[in-house]
Amino acid sequence: MKRKEFFSSLFAFVPLVLGFLGISKISVDFLNPETGNAKIRKIFAISLEDINIGESRNMTDLKGKEFLLIRTGEKKVKALSTTCTHLGCTVYWQQDKNRFYCPCHQGVFNPDGEVVSGPPPKKLNSYDTEIIGNNVYIYLKDKEA
């Protein structure tokens, strides 16, 4: 290749490739904006006077997703996510079998949320809780801005 041809193709292709890379980067960033910068909020959930030991309540987090609040002891509560850890379906509480059951791929969890059988890889998630006096607070992720 002659020197002149080499340089003219260099000037033609380098900007083309750089331009292509630049546009790709811009498009990908545009389509994938930062998420997950939502604040964690501490929110009053219930007073211990309104829930007996062993009882549970259906509650809704700040994104509208339901979860279970269970009072497990005198000064102990547990906030269990009902979203299956396998592929995100909602589990059912089955009173007669004393278990959580996921209809999607037949995952089974015990009342503590631990996996009993089926494909789920880990126990059900739980939300952090705090009891101050008689008041139960839950730490919930806010909606994204």
């Binding site: 059912y92 209809p103 999607c104 037949q106 494909p119």
Partner: peptide, 19 residues
Amino acid sequence: TPIHIKPEWYFYPVFRWLK
């Protein structure tokens, strides 16, 4: 989640595999 859940027929083999 509906208690009886199935995907479209062409995803049946994958769905069974996931179980």
